[in-house]
Design a protein around this nucleic acid. Structure first.
Lengths: 195, 195
DNA sequence: GTCTATACGGCGATAGAC
DNA sequence: GTCTATCGCCGTATAGAC
């Protein structure tokens, strides 16, 4: 199907360009040219630039979920979390070069105002939710589970910002190692789901 | 002096707007109108938009240094660090609403490429350097001092990103509390400056 | 030094032929 | 469904009167 192919190529191109150059600095013409689709044709698939951005976010959400699907085979929630954190290593170079694709987009969307902010945040919201469930399964109270999930995501985002700012991947690697160590040593919670 | 006054007003206006709307989304016209200076006159004070941005970064660097000056009166490096971390509380609301002014600018500048990236990073570089000195004075080896400095800055930046994304200041407050606790309990280093 | 008017380019979005 | 041509707006930067 030619349609789906072009649409897919546009999403892929937009995803990459939003990451590398930022949303605000990526024009429809940039996306069209990278996807090798004529400029005007883009508007057949996406009504506005914001629409394209929302689609990219949905696409990223699906990707993140798919990557976690594989982890659900692991029997222990602790191991799932550690495997998840370890998987961050694959993107160290890209994140050092361009920052976190999701984090950058959230920040940009928030400055723009409007409904895009919520669209961009769905990936983080979903990640936090998944991590929270793992910590609940480890026996932590809901409050702790939320706090720990935020610690992982926040720690990672902070390390990426530093790595990107100073073009130094070591910040990311150190944080991954620290999170892994912390998860490994963390005593399991006592309550059954914090009851 | 009318000159210095206008220049100052332009810097202040640009500082605020870069924070609230982002650099890429703030036009010279926006800055001029916020500072109540005619559009064309801006170019008498700043050659280009990038020039204005560099000036704002220098201005922020000076502010951060001035705020730390007061802390140098404290005799213990640990207390200086704790006081520094505590001072983050003042900006919790603004950071929740608009993100970290410095972090946002660094990220944007990195996406733009060119020399702006370095201009934007000077504030972080200077903060890290100051924190590193405090940890050295506490007796930590240089490697640990750098790592700990990055932990404070990274932890803070990550918490701000989450707070901004979800419009929830609690992320920032929790991280401040965690850093304060960590600094309070951290055993002093053994070596004299890591020797 | 100050301000107005405007040149010039780029971008989002659309019209309309095929 | 596909693609070209183009409209209209906004942004940076400059020219030049005062």
């Amino acid at each position: 199907m030619v349609q789906a192919d072009k649409r897919e190529r546009l999403i892929q191109a937009a995803d990459g360009l939003f990451h590398q150059k930022g949303f605000e600095h990526t024009s429809i013409a940039d996306v069209a040219s990278a996807a090798e689709v004529p400029l005007g044709n883009v508007y057949y698939y996406f009504k506005t630039r914001g629409d394209l951005m929302r689609t990219v976010s949905e696409h990223r959400l699906a990707s993140a979920r798919a990557r976690r699907e594989g982890l659900n085979a692991l029997p222990s929630p602790r191991d799932r979390l550690i495997a998840w954190v370890n998987s961050f290593e694959d993107s160290t170079e890209e994140c050092t070069a361009y920052g976190c694709p999701i984090g950058s987009l959230c920040l940009e969307a928030n400055k723009l105002g409007g409904p895009m902010a919520k669209d961009a945040s769905v990936v983080f919201r979903d990640s936090l939710e998944w991590m929270r469930k793992q910590f609940l399964e480890m026996g932590f109270a809901d409050r702790m589970a939320r706090e720990y999930a935020a610690r992982i995501l926040g720690g990672r985002q902070g390390s990426i910002l530093l790595a990107n700012t100073f073009k130094e991947p070591e910040y990311i690697r150190l944080e991954i190692a620290r999170l892994r160590k912390w998860l490994g040593e963390l005593p399991a919670g006592k309550g059954r789901n914090g009851k």
